[in-house]
């Protein structure tokens, strides 16, 4: 193996088509997850995302059994789920989180039971749970690119509405905007991100890619624009670094990417200049020293 500073170290792997595809996939999914993850974090939809990815699993299994595009099938189910969550959210009698939790854990179980009808069960289960970015099909790559464009356009056009509803739903209502509609749009975007990313990092770990870069960015920025930008840089670079590490060390790609993301978040949480743990500890220590003993 050549040295770290030799360009060939990075270029040689890219001579293989599967690595080229994987690199494009990782960049696209990183951009998408950072963009939508920012709004998921700001609107407090992490739990809804967790529930949704369980349900999407059923869609993946079903389309696998029926022999369709995994991404296409998952997308259909995800949109259905987004609608269902919107409806459940309005049933105030049952706690929203309870209802969502029960329903979607059950749907995940259904997915695993269904998977037993496939002959090659266990290996495919691993693929679905952990992702298989090295085997991504050109069609799915194109679909992913399409989803990224759609998300960019929707968020670009309705930026102020999405921000307003996330920050102050009461004012949004008073201005005559339907919070249900804008939350619904965000749920659809969330569904798109979860579905698109599951082939890269797998169903189990997709939420990390959605939340970690956005949360990292929130620790480092003061406005939403920069937050999205930093989240994108974190997500894309974690994806690329994770991809290369997994190629060189021959470890699963999805988990490696998520590990890199998690490490970046952990380091930021410790060292962030304003909101970091170390900064806070230092502040308290200085404060305690400045208070004279009683």
């Amino acid at each position: 193996m050549s040295g770290l500073f030799d360009p060939a170290t990075f270029l040689l792997p890219l001579q293989q088509p599967f690595m080229q595809n994987a690199l494009v996939a990782v960049v696209l999914v990183g951009l998408l997850c950072a963009l939508i993850g920012t709004f998921v974090v700001l609107r407090g939809l992490a739990f809804v995302g967790e529930a949704m990815r369980h349900a999407i699993f059923v869609g993946v299994v079903l389309s696998f059994l029926l022999g369709g595009s995994l991404l296409g099938g998952a997308l259909l189910v995800a949109l259905l789920v987004a609608w269902l969550i919107g409806v459940l959210g309005r049933q105030q009698r049952i706690g929203e989180d309870t209802a969502i939790g029960v329903l979607f854990s059950a749907s995940f179980a259904l997915g695993i039971v269904l998977l037993n009808f496939a002959r090659t069960g266990v290996r495919d289960l691993a693929t679905m749970l952990l992702g298989n970015v090295l085997g991504i099909a050109p069609f799915d790559l194109a679909l992913t690119a399409g989803v990224v464009v759609v998300a960019l356009v929707i968020i670009g056009v309705f930026f102020k509405e999405l921000v307003l509803v996330a920050f102050d739903p009461a004012l949004a209502l008073a201005q005559g905007r339907s919070v249900v509609v804008w939350d619904g749009l965000l749920l659809v975007l969330l569904a798109l991100a979860l579905t698109t990313a599951f082939q890269t990092v797998g169903n189990l770990l997709v939420l990390a890619l959605l939340l970690a870069p956005a949360t990292t960015a929130r620790l480092l920025t003061r406005r939403i624009g920069p937050m999205i930008g930093v989240a994108m840089v974190v997500a894309v670079s974690s994806g690329i670094v994770g991809l290369y590490i997994s190629y060189w060390r021959n470890v699963p790609t999805g988990p490696t990417i998520v590990l890199v993301c998690g490490a970046v978040f952990g380091i930021t949480l410790l060292c962030a200049p304003e909101h970091g743990v170390m900064r806070n500890v230092a502040r308290q220590w200085r404060l305690r020293r400045s208070v004279p003993p009683a």
Partner: peptide, 15 residues
């Protein structure tokens, strides 16, 4: 929330 003071005041114009 990552918004500046001016960002929040501008929300009053959204309607």
């Amino acid at each position: 929330f990552p918004l500046s003071v001016l960002d929040v005041v501008l929300m009053g114009r959204y309607g």
